[in-house]
């Protein structure tokens, strides 16, 4: 008798739903995946059973409401492997910019009846609330990443994650460096590979949507960006963008914001 199929869920928190497209856009591989595993919960694709116990739970989105906090604890209890997908789930997402701003003040300015909004003061990554087994970076993640993780877990091995910087992918694709040849403020030298150096291959600068690579020298890149003509506030914004909540980028962003407000003599 064949062994029972692994059970899989895809959950969503505060996010744009884009990472779930990594599954929905798989084409034939989505059918293959559905044969290999039992997809028990994936609201955007059809099956809804959020409380079912599963072997693999993919989690998209950040924690930004009191309900989110409770729901992620339940998912953790129900899941053998919990894998975050994307910048929101892994670093708090673009919406974590509110951690650096006056969130309640903004809500009061935008909504006629702010009393109906029940948000936490911060948007935080899943790992700030429950233990996470694997983090897949990207905004959004791609099919190769999610399928690679599923395949490895089905083989019973720990998925091998990218560690390299975007520059390596850029060179493997024979792209011409936009920082050196055009003076663009490329974030590739501190950013995790995985996108295939998509932006540099189209002649534009990487904006770090895959988050920090291992051993990033954000301080040295920040100085280089300033040398390319960016004012400190602009350097800060390069780091405080999609993955502003990632500690290496948060620290660099803070440093350049301080430079902007209180430049060294």
């Amino acid at each position: 008798m064949a062994a029972a199929k692994a059970r899989l869920a895809v959950h969503k928190f505060s996010s744009c739903d884009g990472c779930q497209l990594a599954f929905l856009n798989l084409g034939e591989d989505l059918l293959r995946l559905a044969e290999l595993v039992e997809i028990v919960h994936f609201a955007e694709a059809g099956p809804v059973d959020p409380e079912a116990p599963v072997d693999i739970a993919f989690v998209e989105g950040s924690i930004s409401t009191p309900e989110d906090e409770e729901r992620i604890r339940q998912i953790r209890k129900n899941s053998r492997w919990l894998i975050t997908i994307g910048a929101c789930a892994t670093a708090g997402g673009l919406q974590a910019l509110r951690n650096l701003a006056d969130g309640p003040g903004w809500i009061a300015e935008i909504y006629a009846q702010p009393g109906y909004i029940h948000s936490l003061a911060t948007s935080t990554p899943i790992a700030a609330h429950v233990p996470v087994d694997l983090e897949l970076w990207g905004c959004p993640v791609n099919g190769r990443q999610v399928l690679g993780a599923v395949r490895a877990l089905l083989f019973g091995v720990v998925p091998a994650l990218e560690q390299d910087k975007v520059c390596l992918e850029c060179k493997r694709h024979q792209a011409v460096c936009v920082l050196v040849a055009k003076g663009l403020p490329c974030m590739g030298p501190v950013t995790l590979a995985g996108c295939g150096a998509l932006c540099p291959r189209f002649g534009r600068d990487c904006y770090a949507c895959y988050g920090p690579a291992e051993n990033p020298n954000a301080a040295a890149l920040g100085r280089r960006l300033e040398g390319l003509g960016l004012v400190p506030e602009a350097v800060a914004r390069r780091f405080l963008f999609i993955n502003n909540g990632a500690p290496d980028f948060a620290e660099a962003g803070r440093h350049w914001q301080e430079q902007a407000h209180d430049p060294e003599p």
Binding site: R151, F155, C167, C177
Partner: peptide, 24 residues
């Protein structure tokens, strides 16, 4: 930056990594 641009453009550098990419 430990970015590997130098070794990637160097015409004599030959280091490589190997990896397996299994079908789904």
């Amino acid at each position: 930056l430990s970015c590997a641009n130098c070794s990637s453009v160097c015409p004599t550098c030959f280091c490589h990594a190997e990896m397996e990419e299994p079908a789904l």
